[in-house]
């Protein structure tokens, strides 16, 4: 059987505390493409993100999730990251006492143990800081400890740029960001996509609101409602949601199922 390149979910059903949240997700994010996953609160967007990343609180009932053909669901979170998956958290955890610099280096070494001497690593970090408009003083602070919402999201983008994964899931990266922060997130994603390391990254951009897609244009838009992808289309689908909200799509889906 040929290997399907991409981040692929097949009939993925997931429960949290015995309540089924995802009711059969089929989705393929190809290398180099941007897929948006949009949906109202409670539709299961973050559940998909955490399930892909391997959070222990999510119980997979059936289906599969593969990364360039490698099954992810059997792997612990760190092995999934090593396979090439990156999750940008909606609410990144703080790690007090661990400096950003130390954390970045440890993460990069874990995912790509082969490369970068300290001087090159330093240059990489400073280049990426520059792209993100981040003060180098950031490096000496403890990971997400006392960070503002915007600072946390910038650190997520910094980590993504430094790890340069094969596939990145951005979970509500736009939530709680002001327009400046959103622009710098957009700049960072686009700069990464234009770089040699980043041009083949496949993105799954999870969002409630379409506004992030103005900065990170999607090739494909999926609408998730009540644990199912009810509609898939081009970028115009995001505009439709912006104009009409989720009600139209929800009614359409209900009618189709009836």
């Amino acid at each position: 059987m040929p290997i399907t390149r991409g981040l692929v979910a097949r009939d993925l059903r997931v429960a949290v505390e015995n309540k089924e949240i995802l009711k059969g997700i089929d989705l393929t994010v190809e290398p180099g493409r941007v897929h948006a996953l949009m949906g109202p609160n409670g539709s299961g967007k973050s559940t998909l993100a955490f399930t892909l990343a391997g959070h222990p609180g999510y119980q997979v009932l059936s289906g599969s999730a593969t990364l360039d053909g490698e099954e992810l669901l059997e792997l612990p979170p760190d092995k999934r990251a090593k396979a090439g998956l990156f999750l940008s958290f909606q609410y990144p955890a703080a790690i007090p006492g661990v400096s950003v610099a130390n954390f970045l280096r440890t993460a990069r070494m874990a995912v790509r143990p082969e490369d970068l001497n300290p001087a090159k690593f330093r240059k990489l970090v400073f280049d990426k800081l520059d792209t993100l408009d981040m003060d180098p003083a950031f490096l000496g602070r403890y990971v997400n400890d006392g960070f503002s919402g915007g600072e946390k999201k910038r650190l997520e983008m910094l980590q993504m740029a430094i790890i340069a994964p094969k596939y990145a899931v951005l979970d509500e990266t736009d939530s709680g960001l002001d327009i400046d922060a959103l622009q710098s997130v957009g700049r960072s994603v686009n700069a990464l996509r234009e770089s040699d390391e980043g041009k083949d990254i496949g993105f799954l951009v999870i969002t409630h609101y379409p506004r992030i897609l103005k900065y990170v244009p999607a090739d494909v838009v999926h609408i998730l409602i009540d644990g199912r992808i009810v509609k898939t289309g081009g970028p115009e689908l995001a505009n439709e949601i912006e104009r009409d909200g989720y009600d139209g799509v929800r009614d359409e889906a209900a009618a189709a199922r009836a």
């Binding site: 959070h55 222990p56 979170p77 993460a107 874990a110 995912v111």
Partner: peptide, 13 residues
């Protein structure tokens, strides 16, 4: 949460 977060960055448990 911190352990999972570090794990998601490739850092083994």
């Amino acid at each position: 949460d911190a352990l999972f977060y570090a794990g998601s960055r490739g850092i083994a448990r």
